[in-house]
């Protein structure tokens, strides 16, 4: 079975998106944008899963994707809640202002 668009194309696209996400996570100081970049990385992984699922004729790739979406939803809910409470206590959300992890 050959496809109009080979699976490699999708995987390369997925890799490119993932690298863009990494760049965002590593350079942004706004935690909301950092979260968005993490979403981009997750989406890139989803794309890879679905493409490989199609390639091998296995529905598991799609199910993985949906589980990842569920986890991402939870992660965003928690992450944004952390950001809100961080903003409440420190009046800013700049990541470089927050060094609470150092005890």
């Amino acid at each position: 079975m050959s496809f109009a668009v080979p699976t490699e194309h999708y995987l390369l696209l997925s890799a490119v998106l993932f690298c863009i996400g990494v760049a965002g996570v590593a350079t942004k100081r706004n935690p909301i944008v950092v979260f968005m970049c993490i979403e981009i990385m997750l989406n890139a992984a989803n794309l890879g899963f679905v493409a490989l699922g199609r390639h091998f004729g296995d529905v598991g790739g799609q199910i993985y994707t949906m589980l990842i979406i569920a986890v991402a939803a939870g992660e965003v809910a928690i992450g944004l809640a952390i950001i809100v409470s961080l903003f409440r206590t420190r009046e800013t959300i700049d990541l470089d202002e927050a060094d609470l992890l150092k005890l």
Partner: peptide
Amino acid sequence: VWKSGLHAGKATAKTL
């Protein structure tokens, strides 16, 4: 790595 290991899958017209 993006193009390795992609041996012929079991995809059929039906799964598609």
